[in-house]
């Protein structure tokens, strides 16, 4: 199989008030068409950073990403992202959320009727036809995540990037979503990179599991090929010794080999990026607080 996506020796440094912080060092990974790859690693190691670089939302400090022979320099719909917390526009219905994407991607090539059919088809894929005219605050967390996936699928991306897509869901819903995702992937043969911290999810869904070392300067520690034939069924696999071996290998990595031997552990890490405030001046914020 030919390489579709080449993540080539990327380093990522973030400027912080205490000087540059190296989040990633020399992350190198080649992914083939139709492959399902999971990224697993401890929280804060840099999984989202890798995904954001592939998405084009971050620019790597060194190295680069090549998709179908072209370097990635900015975000685009051919690398659709399913965000961790669904990121649906709260003022639009499920249908309209998907529509925004479809209009933007296919507005020139599809007629109105074709677009409508395509939107409905994608909502149908994730079993959301019955609630497509509901707004995000009227549907459950699992349903929102489904719509997020439908929106990404509707862009017909070359690569589907998913950042802990089922992390916020309860176990039962998550199992349903995993099964749906496997069905969809079997049907459409999407290339997928999925971040997860759920070992079972990684083994069940992936062709390869990429295990990342702890940050700072996180990199790929080990890659595990999951050689289980598809379609996979969670109940049958539960008794399969191979499945349990894969599972044990990932767990072992996470427990033992999680820190890079040549990097001293417990280096002072900068504040979480999420805490960085939006750019409006602090004084402006204060005024509003007073006024409210």
């Amino acid at each position: 199989m030919s390489v579709l996506l080449d993540i080539s020796h990327i380093d990522m440094e973030f400027p912080t008030p205490k000087g540059p912080f190296t989040a990633l060092r020399d992350v190198d990974l080649k992914i083939s068409q139709g492959e399902f790859v999971s990224l697993i690693g401890h929280s804060g190691c840099g999984k989202s950073t890798v995904l954001n670089v592939v998405a084009g939302l971050y620019q790597a400090t060194r190295g680069g990403v090549i998709l179908s022979g072209k370097e990635v320099t900015e975000p685009g719909p051919e690398r659709a992202v399913v965000f961790q917390n669904h990121s649906l526009l709260p003022w639009l219905t499920a249908y309209e959320n998907v529509e925004l994407a479809v209009k933007q991607v296919f507005g020139k090539n599809k007629s109105k009727a074709e677009m409508r059919e395509w939107i409905e088809h994608n909502l149908d894929l994730v079993h959301m036809s019955h609630a497509m005219h509901k707004r995000p605050d009227e549907i459950s967390g699992g349903m929102k995540q489904r719509v997020g996936i439908a929106r990404a699928l509707a862009m017909q991306p070359q690569v589907l990037l998913m950042d802990e897509p089922f992390g916020a869901l309860d176990a039962l819903t998550r199992a349903h979503m995993q099964d749906s995702l496997m069905e969809i992937q079997a049907e459409l043969n999407n290339t997928v990179i999925m971040i997860t911290h759920d070992v079972d999810e990684a083994v069940l869904l992936s062709d390869r599991i990429v295990m990342m070392t702890n940050g700072p300067a996180a990199t790929i520690g080990e890659i595990l090929e999951v050689d289980l034939e598809r379609p996979r069924h969670r109940l049958e696999l539960a008794d399969d010794p191979r499945y349990n071996q894969y599972r044990a290998k990932v767990l072992k990595f996470l427990h033992e080999r999680h820190s890079k031997p040549d990097v001293p552990t417990k280096k002072s890490t900068p504040a979480k990026s999420d805490a960085v405030p939006a750019h409006a001046g602090a004084d402006i914020k204060e005024t509003v607080d007073n006024a409210a």
Binding site: E74, G76, P77, N85, L100, Q104, A278, A280, I284, V288
Partner: peptide, 26 residues
């Protein structure tokens, strides 16, 4: 008050929603 509140509202938009817009290349 309108300038300030509008500016704060716009600057404070959920980063993920802005990212959605970027991925779509709006």
């Amino acid at each position: 008050p309108m300038v300030i509140n509008t500016a704060v509202g716009v600057a404070g938009i959920d980063k993920d929603l802005v990212n959605v817009s970027k991925v779509l290349r709006l």
